[in-house]
Amino acid sequence: MRFFLYILLTGILSVFYSCVGSSDPRYPRYTVFPEEKAVTAQEMSLDTVFFRYPYRVTVRDSVAIIMDLHNDNHYFYAFTYPEWKAIAPFGKRGEAPEEMLSAEMFQFSSLDSVWILDANRMLITRWSVSPEDKTVSRKEEIRLDKKLVRSLDFYRTDSAFLITDYLSDFRYHKVSHRGKPIKSIGEIPTEINYEQDTHPALAQAWRSFTDYNPKNGIYAMATQLGETLEIYNLKTQTHNVIYGPAGEPQFIAKGGEGFPTGIKGFVDIQVTDDYIYTVFDGMSWKERDKFYERGMAAPKGGHFLYVFDLEGNPVRKYTLDKNILGIHINEKTNTGIATCAESDSPIVTFKL
């Protein structure tokens, strides 16, 4: 089915589940944002590099890295910033030993610490960028323990990797820098009672984008389906769960396959020193399916930027004039950079 294929291409996994009832609401809801603002995005001119699906962007030390999810050759490209002059592609797609079978997420910590997760190889690699030599070289690889099954999102801290759980037994794992599980934390904050044998599917339904800020200890998760935000404060060991109007991910099972019945939710998340920024889609799967029935591609990304405080209280809602995917927010300059798969340019910028 066309829309089911789209789920696979955008990295959202289908789910098989059945529920046996639900309880009263356990978690607080937000309904509106105190402030709302319309924002105009400006396209950026980059060196001649073709992107098929510009997915994520991050800037550090006068270097920008763009991840191309559905590329022909390389998953990543490094550029000078703010000039956007090409440095080098890296993360070659292929089956050779040092090539990549997949790229789920990356973390750009410094010029010599670009961390990349390849779920299909169960591997995290570290890369180093040299703007002067115009090279990006592979420096280290960490093979993940098979107990982790399939890791789809991660963040490297000074002491461990934070890796989301795939089997629904926990919410995330602390994993050593050698790839070995140390501790498993949390549970999926659903308000629906599920049969035990559907729990692996439940984990797929609750697949979330994550980010962590070591300064404030906030580790945040935003669901790709539905509208649920989770905030773990690793310094105070507290956990907040906040539901939006669309609630948790919704699905039905038909003919042995799982189909979303609610909305496409958050698209990216960034935790800054003071706020949590999220890109939000919000289109229902019924609406998206109508595009495919007409032989058209559904919109890619969302045109809402939601801002929450570090406890999950809604602060501000921005409405952009373009759909965006990945974000990089600079609070010092009050600007945002985003990837855009529906523009002639893969990068747009906007003022907040």
Results as ranks from 00 to 15, higher is better:
residue 150 R to G: 00
residue 160 A to I: 01
residue 202 L to H: 03
residue 201 A to M: 10
residue 202 L to V: 11
residue 176 S to E: 04
residue 194 Y to N: 10
residue 197 D to G: 11
residue 158 D to E: 06
residue 158 D to Q: 00
residue 153 D to M: 08
residue 158 D to A: 03
residue 193 N to G: 10
residue 167 L to S: 12
residue 175 V to S: 02
residue 160 A to C: 02
residue 196 Q to R: 15
residue 183 K to W: 13
residue 174 K to Y: 09
residue 206 W to A: 05
residue 159 S to Q: 02
residue 173 H to E: 04
residue 182 I to T: 12
residue 196 Q to Y: 14
residue 156 R to H: 04
residue 152 L to Y: 11
residue 149 V to T: 09
residue 146 K to A: 01
residue 152 L to V: 09
residue 184 S to R: 13
residue 209 F to S: 08
residue 148 L to G: 03
residue 188 I to K: 05
residue 209 F to V: 14
residue 179 G to P: 05
residue 194 Y to D: 09
residue 164 T to C: 03
residue 148 L to E: 04
residue 151 S to M: 08
residue 153 D to C: 08
residue 210 T to P: 08
residue 160 A to D: 01
residue 192 I to S: 07
residue 165 D to V: 10
residue 194 Y to M: 12
residue 206 W to S: 00
residue 180 K to W: 09
residue 191 E to L: 07
residue 168 S to L: 02
residue 210 T to D: 09
residue 164 T to V: 10
residue 148 L to Y: 03
residue 146 K to I: 05
residue 182 I to C: 11
residue 175 V to H: 05
residue 207 R to Q: 07
residue 152 L to I: 08
residue 195 E to G: 13
residue 149 V to M: 04
residue 175 V to E: 02
residue 160 A to P: 01
residue 171 R to A: 01
residue 181 P to F: 15
residue 179 G to K: 12
residue 203 A to Y: 09
residue 185 I to F: 15
residue 172 Y to Q: 04
residue 194 Y to H: 15
residue 161 F to P: 00
residue 148 L to H: 03
residue 158 D to F: 00
residue 181 P to I: 13
residue 164 T to L: 06
residue 203 A to M: 03
residue 168 S to Q: 08
residue 173 H to I: 06
residue 154 F to W: 08
residue 199 H to G: 08
residue 189 P to M: 06
